[in-house]
Amino acid sequence: MIIEKLIRKLKGNPDYKWESTYSERDLLSVTKIRFAQVIRGLWLRLFLKKCTGLLFIGSNVKVRHGYQLRAGKNLILEDNVSINALSLNGIVLGDQVSIARDSILFCTGIIAQKGTGIIIGDRTGISARAYFAGQGGITIGNDVIMGPNVQIFSENHNYSNINILIKDQGVTKQAVTIGNNCWIGGGATILSGVNIGDGCIVAAGSVVVKSIPANSIVAGVPARIIKNREEV
């Protein structure tokens, strides 16, 4: 099938195959949507720092400070994605990155404190309603998959002095790193300073407050290691 071959070429994966059958109406509908996204992408790429491939841009996508955003091949931003790249290092999105609808990525909170930035590696898929706060820096590796409603915070409010309003005590910025080939379950929250090693699985709804060694499976609030994948 022509469309399947086209997707195979765009993904750079000669083994890519559809596992289901589609009617001509299904294919026409999908093609129409993707074509409209490519047209929007032609306009958006004029405002980006760098873009090396096709852009598939959904409706109502907002990209602010696009001159600080670098995109690899075949970036997909679904409907209502909001990106603000204002930061020291900007936002870097690798090849074949997809960010699903209603997701928010930003790097600077209050304008007086310029944030660090966000890096997302090749072939990583971000599901719907993700919230990435990159003030202290967020780095996500290659081939990472995420469920919906994942939140990542790289900044915390200071609160130790009970005689000063919390909002007036400033913040502490600490980078978050997620390694390659990780699966972050839906509704998971990852807090500042956390380093998640390669091959980890974070169960849905977990709150990760401490770093996790490679190939760990974690779950809970706060998240605890329940198994190592090498022992499965």
Rank of each mutant, 00 (worst) to 15 (best):
V144Q: 15
I111A: 02
K114H: 01
S154E: 05
I152D: 12
S160K: 12
N158A: 00
V150D: 15
A112Y: 04
A112E: 09
T108H: 10
R101A: 08
S103C: 06
P148C: 04
G109A: 12
S160V: 00
S103T: 10
Y159D: 11
F106N: 05
Q135I: 00
D95P: 07
S154T: 04
F153I: 02
T108V: 07
R129I: 00
I99A: 11
I138T: 05
E155I: 01
I104H: 11
G141E: 13
Y159N: 12
T139M: 14
Y159E: 11
G121I: 01
I140C: 13
Q151P: 00
S103M: 06
G117W: 04
D102M: 05
F106S: 05
R129A: 08
I104Y: 10
I140S: 14
S127Q: 06
M146K: 10
T108C: 08
I140P: 12
D122M: 02
S103D: 09
S103K: 05
S154K: 06
G147N: 10
I110E: 07
A112R: 06
N149F: 08
G147W: 07
A100W: 08
T108P: 04
G125Q: 09
D102G: 03
M146I: 01
G136H: 15
C107E: 04
G121A: 03
S160R: 07
S98V: 00
N156G: 01
A112K: 08
N158L: 04
G137A: 04
I140K: 13
T108L: 08
Y159I: 03
A100S: 14
I152H: 04
S127V: 01
I118W: 11
G141C: 06
